[in-house]
Write a protein that binds this DNA or RNA. Structure first.
Lengths: 251, 251
DNA sequence: CGGTTCCTTGAGAGAACTCAACGTCGGTGG
DNA sequence: CCACCGACGTTGAGTTCTCTCAAGGAACCG
């Protein structure tokens, strides 16, 4: 892995170009910001920190919340462990997503964050971010949008839906987050993680995928899922309300 | 009702005093703000609009999102109706809570908002709020805190818990929101609303309350619930993670 | 090549749901 | 004043969906 040398070699000019050359592009929280804001963002951000190891921890639940992270590549999951030892995945973060935002306003991270696959992230200290938010209204609004988007998603997924509705909505949501074009999805996470996230047993996730496959709506081969009948999936997932045929919920 | 005349008679000095005299006090989103920020907040806020009618709508899902509301008295619920006609309560808003925040960043409200009981709210236009956020960092941070608090609550309630855990957590959460002292709670909402919110059938809410009562942990009499063994409820609700014996999650 | 983890399928169990009935309460109108 | 009505709360009985337990196969790694 050349990750380590890469991150060490970056000097100030390279940092500025880090965002303009970023594969995430407009999907990043900074997408569409005025150049001046981007400049200031780049000034406080530490770009593409490598997280080559699967299961590598960004931060632990209860730790002092001093940073937020923007995913540049790979996938991060957040999860909690309750007093009974039950682990629950609270969110998957794909390129462009911000991890740790929900710690704004409290001193400690409410959950753990680890890599699901090898990943790269950009880091910003919370203090510097707050300073930036106070003086860059456009960025402030982008962060608010992320927070409200996460909130709407959490409220939607909190609903009482069947395993089929959940899994269909999950697949479509991942498709949207990955760009919304390709019908072949590489799911980075395990069935167990999907189940934990969707509040389903691992076996139920499997059975549901099998059922969708028997209907010809998808082709499920381990981590690769091909959507053959997105319209049918949309129809099933509609009540969940987290994805729409042509109209995206978020602005 | 003298509500209407009250709201019409308020002039600038009265408006400024509206917050200092507000029964919500420090629980409001503006609690603890510098005097200068309070002044500006009071300048754009329209105080205690009366909503005497139960079921009175603040806004409809899909409507142009032009305002946010702070609850001054009573209770507001937000809910969605999916394509199958299923109604789902997404949140209850008690005095001090902000309704409509999750529409920041999108043009339309994602859900309906109606009164659960007679209520009073304060209104701020979204445009003026955004202007204020850009120039009053302390207020901006308070709003962020509300958003992240709502997000953490939604994520917590989204988990896979038993009916008993959910109901216990709900009761304790309401107690906290009402000040955290009194053990006698007046629940403003119906069993049906509670069930919709907690993802339980109405009957399951009833049965669970009955079960908790048989154990001597609570006394349930229609809308009035008395907590007799809060510690036992805490122990049951712990995995949900939305309320804590002595330590509150939010700052 | 053994060990581990993940994915998948089957069979039985359990928690919550649906359907149904009944009592209470508050409002309405005769 | 009282009968009627609808909404709400409560309890019971049977059903269903998902979970748990169990086991086998496939992929990956040391």
């Amino acid at each position: 892995m050349a990750f380590d040398t890469l991150s060490k070699d970056f000097s100030a000019p390279a940092i500025r170009s880090a965002c303009t050359l970023c594969p995430v592009g407009g999907n990043c929280v900074t997408g569409g910001l005025p150049a001046a804001d981007m400049q200031r963002w780049a000034g406080v951000m530490i770009p593409h920190l490598p997280l080559a190891q699967v299961g590598k921890q960004l931060y632990a639940a209860g730790a002092n919340a001093d940073c937020v992270y923007v995913v540049r590549a790979g996938c991060i999951k957040t999860y909690t462990v309750d007093g009974e030892g039950n682990e629950r995945v609270r969110g998957f973060f794909l390129p462009g997503d911000v991890v740790g935002l929900d710690a704004i306003g409290i001193g400690h991270y409410p959950e753990n964050a680890v890599t699901v696959v090898a990943a790269q992230v950009c880091r910003v200290s919370k203090g510097q971010l707050q300073g930036l938010l106070a003086s860059a209204p456009a960025l402030n609004m982008r962060v608010m949008e992320r927070l409200t988007r996460d909130l709407r998603l959490a409220l939607a997924l909190g609903g009482d839906y069947s395993a089929e509705q959940r899994v269909a909505a999950f697949l479509l949501h991942i498709q949207e987050r990955l760009g919304g074009k390709a019908n072949v999805l590489k799911l980075p996470m395990s069935r167990r993680d999907i189940g934990s996230y969707l509040r389903l047993a691992t076996e139920t996730v499997c059975r549901t995928l099998t059922k969708l496959e028997e209907r010809g709506w998808i082709i499920s081969a381990d981590k690769t899922v091909t959507l053959r009948e997105p319209a049918a999936l949309w129809a099933v997932a509609e009540p969940v309300g987290i994805c729409r045929p042509r109209l995206r919920l978020a602005a």
